[in-house]
Amino acid sequence: MTELRGFYTLWLREVKRYFRDKVRIVSSFFQPFLWLVVFGTGFRFSGQIGELNYQEYLFPGIIGQALLFTSMFMGISVIWDKEFGFMKEILVAPISRVTIFLGKMVGDSTDAVLQGTIIFLVAALLGIKVDLVAYFKALPVMLLITFGLVSIGLTIASFMRSLESFGVIQSFINLPLFFLSGALFPLTNPSIPDWLRLISKGNPLTYGVDALRTIILGEAWQPLQALHVNLAVLGAFDIIMIIIGTWAFTRMK
C-alpha cells in the first residue's frame, strides 16, 4: 500500500511538473509544426508513397520522433533531482527502488505521450486527416513505445553527474534512432539497401513507428510486419529496459 502510494506520488509529480513548464509545452508545438509544414510540404511535391502524400506519411513518423526525443530528454529530470537535492529525499524514503523507478518512469512516459498528443493536435490544425478513434487506438501503443525509451534515458542519467554530459550522450542516441526508424522514409521501398534495412530492424523505434502507421493510416499503409509482431517486439524491449533501469536505480547513491 505504501509502495502504491509512493508510486502515485512520484507519477503525479512528473505530470505536474510537465504542466507547469509552459515554455516546453509551447515549444513542443513548434518543432512538429516545422517538420510537418516545411519538411513535409517540401517532400510532398517531390514524390508519393503509395497512395499517400508525404505529409500524411510523415505524420506518424513525427509522433515517433516526439516520443523518442521527449522520452530520452526525461532522463534529465534525474540529473536535475540529483543536482538540486530532491533525489536524496526520494532515496531515503521508506519505499523500494523498484517503486521509485516505476513511478518516475510511468510519470515521464505519461509526459511523453502528452507530447505525442500535441502532434495529433498540430496535424489536425494543419488539415492532415486525423480521426479520433485512431488517436485512442494509438494511445496504448504510444505508451508501449515510451516505456522502453524513457527507461533508457533514466538509466543513462542515473550514471551521470552533469547536465552537459547528458546532452552529448543524448545526441549520440536520439538522431541515429530517429534516422534509422523509418520515420522519414519508407523502409518497405525495395531499393533501400540491405545494410540500412538490417540496422533499422535492430531499432525498437522502427517497430513503434510501423505500428503507429498501421493504426493511423490504415489500409493505405503497407506495414513492415503485422501489428501484433510490432507490439510483441515493443513489449519485450520494454521489459528488458525496465529491468535494466530498476537495476541502475538500485545502485544509485
Binding site: 502510494r5 506520488t9 509529480r13 505536474k16 533531482d81 538540486f84 537535492g85 530532491f86 536524496k88 524514503a93
Partner: peptide
C-alpha cells in the same frame, strides 16, 4: 546539509509528497 526540496512545487505539495512517501 544541502537543500533537498522540489523547488518547482509549492511548500504544501512538498509536504504532501513527503507524507505519501512515508505512508
Amino acid at each position: 546539509q544541502d537543500p533537498s526540496i522540489d523547488d518547482r512545487m509549492t511548500g504544501r505539495e512538498n509536504l504532501f509528497m513527503h507524507a505519501n512517501l512515508y505512508g
